[in-house]
Amino acid sequence: MKVKQISVFLENRKGRLYEVLNVLATEKINIRALSIADTADFGILRLIVPDPDAAKKVLEKGGFTVKENNVIAIEVPDRPGGLSFVLKALQDCDINVEYLYAFVAKSQKDAIVVIRTENNDGALKALKHGEVKVLTPEELYGL
C-alpha cells in the first residue's frame, strides 16, 4: 500500500520553513511526519499529512513549489536490528532506497519508517515477502 507524500522546494532563506508551516497551521492541517533534506543552497521539505491533496492546494496557493509522490510507510519493531531487518529484505531484491525517515507515534509500540525507493511496486513485493508490516494510508493517518 503506497502513501502520498508532499514535497516542498525551500530556498535557503531565513524564515522560509516557518512560512510553509504557517500556511499549514492557518489551514488547520496537521502534520503526521516530516523530514528535511538540505544542501548548501536549497532544501526539500517532505510531509505526511492526512489530506495531501488539500495541503498541496493551499501550499500552491501560497506560492510554493509542491510535488506529490508515493512513498511506503512501514512498522519497524522498536528494538536493535529492527530497521536493518527491513533493509535486508529490500537489498535481497536489489531495490535501492532513495531516502527514508523514521518517527515514533505516541499510541504505537513500534517505530514508523517512511521509505522512498525508485521502484515502489517492487519494494512492496519485497517487503511483503520479508513479512514486514506495511501501513495503509488510513492506518498511517490514524496514528
Binding site: Q5, S7, T39, F42, I44, T65, V66, K67, E98, Y99
Partner: peptide, 15 residues
C-alpha cells in the same frame, strides 16, 4: 527559478 515541472522530491534529481 525552480518550476513545478522540474521539481523533484529527490536531491539527486535536482542536483
Amino acid at each position: 527559478e525552480m518550476s513545478k515541472k522540474l521539481f523533484s522530491d529527490e536531491i539527486r534529481k535536482i542536483e
